[in-house]
Design a protein around this nucleic acid. Structure first.
Lengths: 173, 173
DNA sequence: TGGGCAAATGCAATAGTATATCAATGCACA
DNA sequence: TGTGCATTGATATACTATTGCATTTGCCCA
């Protein structure tokens, strides 16, 4: 399963053209399985919100989700509905909040409780997730050295994904 | 100057009781000097906003600043005024935006363009800044390995500062 | 099977954060 | 002294998130 996830792009950006239906399907299947194992309920709304988030690899704002959800449900969805679903999905590690964008993106490795770096491309807007334990150990070590007890990490790097970098190099060589 | 800054608490949390007037004075003096060197204008409003941010070591929301600014100026300040001042101060590296709090905190080392980790205490709300080049090199290395070109970093660690950690240990041993 | 409980959802209002736009003023410099 | 650009003023609005309470749903078990 971990390998399947990796094939779909975990740890790096997916190609701008790829079998995205497979990403979505995989994400939903993994979510179902995880929730089943944990004895929590992946309700219709939660599944719908998760699917909407996985409609692309670009972080989505809560109100983007709200708009799409409302249109899927006949125009009747309110902010709390979306935020509650997002809270649940975050608790289960199925989505990440992107602090620097006030947006949400699907987690590419929900099985492991990991501490990942988010890579955010300013070209295409896509996000990718990177798990490098050594980085977090280094961050924690230097914080601990000051007597600080670390409980949570937010690590978000902005820049250009490989595809956008190449395109930009071509345009302005 | 770097040493003076360090004495005032850079690189770690300041004591909960310390000579804070000195922090503020130092921050404003350094800001004046930096702006002079760079040929940019530290106007009244900008100086006022900077001083308000330095009224403590706890990140302040834009509307907290707005309220205080308005009361200092006879009730007449609007959001854009504050946000424009904040934009300027961020461009000059005099304040940092705290993404995970939607708030702003004074930069403890504005002279160097550094990439710092912010340490955010959930106990007292104070923030501290840590500069550890090795961490950022590690982060950048692992991102680069995927072909991503890093342009900006957001690294925010939440947890407990030494003082709050000690207090918590005492209460629940 | 249906009563009772907790979780989930619906719904209305409001709080909190940030930006767009255009007019007016101030400052630097020719 | 006038010209041009940066700064500020003022109004409106967009965007993001939460509170509080009513209602429904799913589930456990008597």
């Amino acid at each position: 399963m971990a390998e399947a996830a990796r094939e779909e792009g975990s740890g790096s950006f997916v190609a701008h053209a790829h079998d995205h239906a497979r990403c979505v399907r995989g994400a939903l299947e993994r979510a179902e399985e995880l929730c089943r194992q944990r004895g929590v309920r992946l309700t219709d709304i939660r599944r719908q919100v998760l699917a909407l988030i996985w409609s692309g690899h670009r972080p989505l704002g809560a109100y983007d989700i709200l708009t799409k959800l409302a249109s899927e449900r006949g125009g009747k969805a309110q902010p709390p509905t979306v935020y509650r679903a997002l809270d649940f999905l975050q608790e289960q590690g199925l989505v990440h909040r992107v602090q620097s964008l006030n947006a949400f993106v699907g987690c590419q490795l929900p099985e492991e409780t990991h501490r990942g770096q988010l890579l955010l491309c300013r070209g295409c807007g896509d996000a990718a997730e990177l798990v490098d334990g050594a980085c977090f150990e280094a961050l924690e070590r230097s914080a601990s050295a000051t007597g600080f007890k670390v409980e949570g990490f937010v690590v978000e790097l902005s820049g250009l994904c490989p595809a956008c970098l190449e395109r930009e190099d071509k345009e302005a060589p």
